[in-house]
């Protein structure tokens, strides 16, 4: 059984049918990709899968359990974490503070003094462990606002990981990143893939081809192609575009 599954999802906004009968499944321990041209409904798909928008019809299952009608915070607590195209960080706080604030152990002690949390070695160690995973070890006291764009994205992924998710969704993680930062991000995801189940929604084919175990191409609200990167890369037009023949 797949860890996460969407079955026959429909979503429309007025006269626009954005998702029609989409079925996707993500296996535990794999990196799954959802890609499509601009405007294909990728972000709507992301919001529906992660519980922000309810689908009009269809079922979403985490480990066989329906999460489709649950509020977003409940979906998050069951282990679905997400990181957005738009950065979602506390700019005035340090790198470490951003992680600590997202730790379930910190959230559980909400009645206690905020400052006391930072005297708790257990919490700080957990937060440092996550910073190591996302490549920000040793930079815990830097204000998050001073990080480069690529490092902010890594921190944002760290914030999502702090919740110890079963599955991590990333929406267009390369958006706004330059070539080098994109490559660093790919390296980061390659390191994380051994520990997490990851779903990446992305326009950039080349980025997904180097990371994903399996990719679904969505367009016009439907899955128009599916396969391993090798299978999809074999497409004649994909090859021509990679060789720059089309431009």
């Amino acid at each position: 059984m797949a860890l996460f599954e969407a079955r026959n999802i429909h979503k429309r906004f007025g006269a626009r049918v954005v998702l029609e009968d989409i079925s996707l499944s993500f296996e535990e321990g794999q990196v799954s990709g959802i890609m499509g041209p601009n405007g294909a409904g990728k972000t709507t798909c992301f919001h529906v899968l992660t519980g922000r928008h309810a689908p009009d019809r269809g079922e979403i299952l985490l480990q066989g359990r329906s999460i489709v009608s649950l509020p977003p915070q409940r979906v998050a607590r069951l282990g679905v974490a997400r990181s957005f195209q738009i950065m979602n960080l506390f700019d005035d706080s340090t790198v470490l503070e951003n992680i600590v604030l997202a730790l379930p152990a910190f959230r559980a002690r909400r009645r206690k003094l905020f400052s006391a949390a930072f005297a708790d070695p257990g919490l700080l160690d957990a937060a440092r462990g996550i910073l190591d995973q996302v490549g920000l070890g040793g930079r815990e006291w830097e204000p998050s606002v001073s990080l480069s764009y690529g490092d902010r994205r890594a921190l944002e992924i760290g914030v999502a990981l702090a919740a110890q998710p079963r599955v991590l969704f990333l929406d267009e993680p390369t958006s706004g990143l330059g070539t080098e930062a994109t490559q660093n991000l790919a390296q980061l995801i390659k390191r994380l893939r051994q520990r997490y189940t990851i779903v990446i929604i992305e326009h950039d084919m080349r980025f997904l081809f180097q990371l994903a175990d399996r990719i679904s191409v969505i367009h016009w609200g439907q899955v128009i192609a599916e396969g391993t990167p090798e299978q999809l890369r074999a497409n004649k037009w994909v090859q021509r575009s990679a060789l720059g023949e089309l431009a």
Binding site: G36, P37, N38, M205, V217, H219, W220, Q222, I224, A225, L232, N235, K236, W237, V238, Q239, R240, S241, A242, L246, A247
Partner: peptide, 20 residues
Amino acid sequence: LFDEPQFNTQDGYIGFMLDF
């Protein structure tokens, strides 16, 4: 009926559309 699908020459999505 597909009304002006975007056959963007910068990427390979054309191929998946044609397969579809």
